[in-house]
Amino acid sequence: MNLGATLAKTGSRVVLVDADIGLRNLDLVLGLEKRIVFDLVEVVEERCQLRQALIRDKRFESLFLLPASQTRDKDAVSEEQFAAVVDQAAETADYVLVDSPAGIEAGFRNAVAGANEAIVVTTPEVSAIRDADRVIGKLSDRGLPVRLIVNRLRPEMVHSGDMLSVDDVCEVLGVELLGIVPDDEEIIDTTNRGEPLALDDSKRLTAIYQKIVRRLEGELVPFTTFDNGYRQGLFGRLFAGLRAG
């Protein structure tokens, strides 16, 4: 959601596809849940056109959502059908971002079917990293280039040795790093309200997503060390003149 909105803000045409059939959420975090008329399954079943099902975002003109169906199963769509919808969306968009469901079952296989690149999101926890490793293996088998976002990093815990560092995570997983997102209450607040961070440049995380987007577009953007750069507490902020990436 935040990647899509940030991409759209820089002028790209972006289609977000919610592949979590039966447990959709992307509509909610975008604040578009009341605007859904048609969904992905109806497009696949040719009960509507793709353009009828796409919902234009309220705030970003070039951002569109293809919502998942809430009352159907993941089995309602085959990999080929899913890939065909993604291909069709890609004809008119610069980016099609497919939000995969958790796990590695049919829903995951569908989400991956139409993609030609993958972003794997993990947290710096042993269990999450093991899952990410398994997923990266599956994506590599399909020949997809994989890049990594480390999410929910708590710099103060890394500092005290209670959390794996980004370097540790990258060493285990051995894939290219796309971004580091600290564990920040802004995420909870903005997703609950359905407001992408890109709306507000004063938010701490907005700059971080902008950096990720620049890397996604091929720019070389250096990573900020969080060691003394990013603290949520007042003291941290006083002592370190903030701004992280």
Binding site: G22, L23, K74, G103, E105, A106
Partner: peptide, 8 residues
């Protein structure tokens, strides 16, 4: 249980 509402 695994995440999701599929076979698992």
């Amino acid at each position: 249980s695994p995440a999701g509402i599929e076979k698992g």
